[in-house]
Design a protein around this nucleic acid. Structure first.
Lengths: 345, 345
DNA sequence: TAATTTTGTTTAAACGATTAAACAACTGGG
DNA sequence: CCCAGTTGTTTAATCGTTTAAACAAAATTA
């Protein structure tokens, strides 16, 4: 690495004080500085290829223009798409994003928060796991600006931007029912995460509301590790029931992806043998031979709003913003009006 | 935000100098410090919930433990998977990753490099676009540690970790030929990027080597914007040729994804009507009704090695490392031995 | 006991910026 | 000709660390 050029180098070369150089390069004291001197400074700065040391600047100004983004796994398309949106919004506002994947792991999450705070990030955008509560409370207590995305904790008063999961799940289930399906199953996670439990609640309430008894055998909750095997197992279990299921709701895109692979392998006819709906979309859903009906999350909107809320908080706005955005059910080939159709409205 | 605790606060509370506090918290001067004092300092640090100001530390030590990662688009699965690997490797070595998407845009790329350098990143991992050459040269000239991944410039002497694209493409084409396909098409990008041109070269050489004349009508090079339409158009063009094509190689996963969607819509039978191979894998490839034969890039290996090379460079190692990793052809259902089979070896 | 070494701690400069306040040199009005 | 205001620039403190060097007291050696 070559010696880095600093204000002092410019100052010396031009023959002025570093203060003046700083003023010029930051366009402060506009009227006061002699045109010719300002010009000379800019010229020399360019010539020496000067680059502000943002670290030094941050130390003095107590502002890093950095946002920390913590997701479960950046390689998940939901996360990476979100990351991209957030990056764009941040970029527009001259912020840089540092990111980390918590991997559903409390220790790693804590470490990430710690690292980011040590680096004096101006704020955090977090898609929290269920074991993140303690840290979240700490963040709130320390008045660190942050906003939760995708997931949140109903009992903790924080900024969040999420989906109206209950409503979305209800709508999907209702769509199944409208199509005439009665035996409707759900594969979801066995987690206390609110967004996931809301999906289950929406599913159950939609059933009840239509007079369909809730059968707990039709809901399978899987763990987070070895998802592939768990989903396959769940699927096979559901298909082996005495009264076979007619429709299946995947509670997340990851579950859907593994589920579809297996359905492909088992040569199950969709939607004839089994109707499907997935939460969230991925390219994968399009490539299934019967493009899937899915619940479309307003990802860009979420990312945009999350960043906006965070930046406002960073600017000192201390109102709490809680947003449950509506999802949209995109109906495609994996659900159709079936025989025992009970006249939708 | 609450007042932040700094060394001075601890020092005052314990009744020692900040130097001593610093020594203790950094485990320096191990033998010299009185046990009881060290303990007291640690105790108070904990009690006050002290957190080192990494910014100040970085300013002094001239080391940020930060890596800048620049990809074309973090929401592309290739990039986000890579990002995840790099994040893990960095994490293990106590580095943090800041990232940015250049969006195939020279100005944005320049801005990102600039921002990252201002932030005094210790080094950069870059998947460069074709218009990145100038900046790359500058980086080299300024002796900034960096390593290119996925793409590189054969004429510029830099660290890089990439795929042996020529070999991979050759192998895929040879596999088509072994299966008995003769009319083999390629959809690729019209770019000067070396990795992409190598894919074309491998394709052509494999054909030639087997005595199959190269027909330039069978290679379609599309632009980067409105990819979806371009791919669809390319596909339709290829299918409408007088002598219809029998096999098709997608030069990237993005092209494959759009291509497959269209093939799905057009109800083309794979592999009967058209055999397919894709570069790189995504979940999407598995969900196509005929799971695709694909060229598997050793992504983890690439990410791991790239980080390793970068960290070595940061440590001062100034040997240039250039790696072309071998790909693996994963044969699945989108290619089969066809009728006019010409006895593979 | 004096000199030396060891132990434990402090002093103070530095990193590279920002910025309030001080200062110097003009300009112009009365 | 003096004072006030304006213009242009510098001084110096500061942000929160690190760390070489200085220092003081205690322990060891001669």
């Amino acid at each position: 690495m070559m010696k880095k050029i600093c204000l002092k180098d410019i100052a010396e070369k031009v023959g002025v004080s570093t203060a003046l150089v700083s003023y010029v390069l930051n366009n402060k004291k506009e009227g006061r500085i002699k045109k010719s001197v300002a010009e000379k400074i800019r010229e020399v700065a360019l010539e020496l290829n000067y680059r502000t040391n943002q670290i030094a600047k941050s130390l003095k100004t107590n502002k890093t223009f950095t946002i920390g983004l913590i997701v479960a796994d950046i390689s998940n398309p939901f996360s990476s798409n979100m990351a991209r949106i957030i990056e764009n919004e941040a970029y527009k506002n001259n912020y840089t994003v540092i990111f980390g994947s918590s991997d559903h792991n409390a220790a790693r999450f804590d470490k990430l928060v710690d690292t980011f705070l040590n680096r004096q990030v101006d704020g955090l955008i977090i898609a929290p796991g269920e074991n993140a509560v303690a840290q979240i409370l700490l963040l709130r207590q320390q008045r660190i600006p942050f906003v939760l995305v995708d997931r949140y904790f109903p009992d903790i008063k924080t900024n969040y931007v999420a989906l109206d999961n209950y409503e979305a799940s209800w709508a999907a289930t209702q769509h199944f029912i409208n199509c005439g399906y009665q035996k409707i199953a759900l594969i979801t996670f066995n987690t206390s995460l609110f967004n996931i439990s809301e999906r289950k609640r929406g599913y159950i309430d939609a059933l009840k509301n239509n007079g369909i008894p809730f059968d707990k055998n039709l809901v399978i909750e899987i763990g987070n590790d070895n998802m592939k095997a768990a989903v396959e197992h769940a699927l096979e279990h559901l298909l082996a029931l005495n009264e076979p299921i007619e429709a299946l709701l995947f509670a997340t895109n990851a579950i859907a992806t593994y589920g579809l692979k297996r359905i492909n392998e088992l040569n199950i006819k969709v939607p004839e043998q089994l109707a499907l709906i997935s939460f969230d979309k991925t390219d994968a859903l399009d490539l299934f031979y019967a493009p899937l009906t899915y619940i479309n999350q307003p990802l860009s909107e979420m990312g945009r709003l999350a960043t906006k809320v965070l930046l406002a908080a960073i600017e000192g706005d201390d109102t709490i913003t809680q947003l449950n955005l509506p999802a949209e059910l995109v109906i495609r080939s994996s659900t159709v009006m079936s025989k025992k159709q009970d006249s939708p409205s």
